[in-house]
Amino acid sequence: MLELLELLEKDSRLTTEEMAIRLGISKEDLEKQIKEYEEQGVIVGYTTMINWEKTEKENVTALIEAKVTPQRLEGFDRVAERIYKFPEVTNCYLMSGGFDLMVIIEGRTLKEVAMFVAHKLAPLESVLSTSTHFVLKKYKEKGRIFSKGETDEREAIFL
């Protein structure tokens, strides 16, 4: 049921009753299916998209390109684990191309993020080099555009 997953990804706050109606299946089947997805780790969690810029909370995001030395037997996984276990790291990807790990970090201030890189990330033995890019403005995240959407311009027409 890819449609169920797509629906959940778009709006996980729909009630199971409404989702069942939308998908044309029974509520019981839907709940069973969701439970299975949760157990299989297909559904990893439920979250909310927040535009922190609109709140009083200070928030800064940085993209860090890291070149690392892969470890014997474990490849990049062990290094990545050392890095992604820090709660400041929101995303961590193994990349093809000019560097190895893309690490996305959120912190309260530029300084906080810089200190994290300097004190936690860069000193790791297997981290050869890092390059930090700060996000100035978020336009779109996970398919959501942050600015106000287009309005309904349809006019009264008979057809």
Partner: peptide, 19 residues
């Protein structure tokens, strides 16, 4: 449609056009 245009919070299920 003339009536509709005078209403503030009317919901139109009248147009046959994708949203």
């Amino acid at each position: 449609f003339d009536l509709l245009n005078e209403m503030e919070d009317a919901i139109s299920l009248g147009v046959g056009e994708p949203d």
